[in-house]
């Protein structure tokens, strides 16, 4: 599966390569990142297992997560994309494209997540048509809730996921 490359004003979205793993593992061991996504920092072994899934998701389903690269520095600053992860969550949204994103702390606060997610939503609309899309965000994750709002997500419901409160947002159709 060739992963498409998406270019925005300040970012390149491309598939992950094995060389991205150090930066990936660095992000996933940052408590400031993982407190809102997953809860606990990941060991290198657990981060590797998660990293493998990124490429496998593309191979199996033809969509997935991109690495986000900052054009000005050439550095990988995070990841974003479209998932089907069969979440054990009620209400279930199996089969509905789920959008997700995560950036290294050094790239926070610059509008990069909004820029990346907008481009991904446009790609998703070409891939799936004008269908409902969802995302889940921890209620105290204000920066990500703001990104979601800016790109058109609206709160659908509040529930729990893995024992923690979570907000399900959607772009309704």
């Amino acid at each position: 599966m060739d992963i498409p490359v998406i270019e925005t004003e300040r970012l390149i979205l491309r598939g992950h390569t094995v060389e991205d793993f150090p930066s990936y593992a660095a992000m996933w061991r940052e408590p400031i990142v993982t407190r809102f996504i997953g809860g606990a920092p990941l060991s290198e072994e657990d981060a590797w297992a998660k990293f493998m899934r990124l490429a496998g998701h593309w191979a199996l389903l033809g969509f997935g997560f991109w690495a986000i690269v900052e054009k000005s520095s050439g550095a990988r600053i995070g990841e974003a994309g479209i998932l089907d992860v069969k979440r054990d969550i009620v209400p279930s949204f199996h089969g509905v494209p789920e959008i997700g994103w995560g950036l290294l702390p050094s790239a926070h606060g610059k509008g990069y997540a909004t820029e990346a997610v907008r481009a991904i939503l446009a790609w998703a609309e070409r891939r799936f048509g004008k269908v409902r899309m969802v995302c889940i965000i921890a209620p105290e994750n204000t920066p990500s809730l703001r990104v979601a709002e800016r790109v058109g997500f609206r709160e659908e419901t509040r529930t729990t996921y893995k024992g923690e409160p979570i907000v399900i947002l959607q772009i309704p159709r």
Partner: peptide
């Protein structure tokens, strides 16, 4: 494994081929 956990393991396998 739950369906979600099994899917995590399952998706990692083709990813391993792609990357390694």
């Amino acid at each position: 494994l739950t369906e979600e956990e099994a899917w995590q393991k399952f998706t990692s396998m083709p990813g391993h081929w792609a990357l390694m």
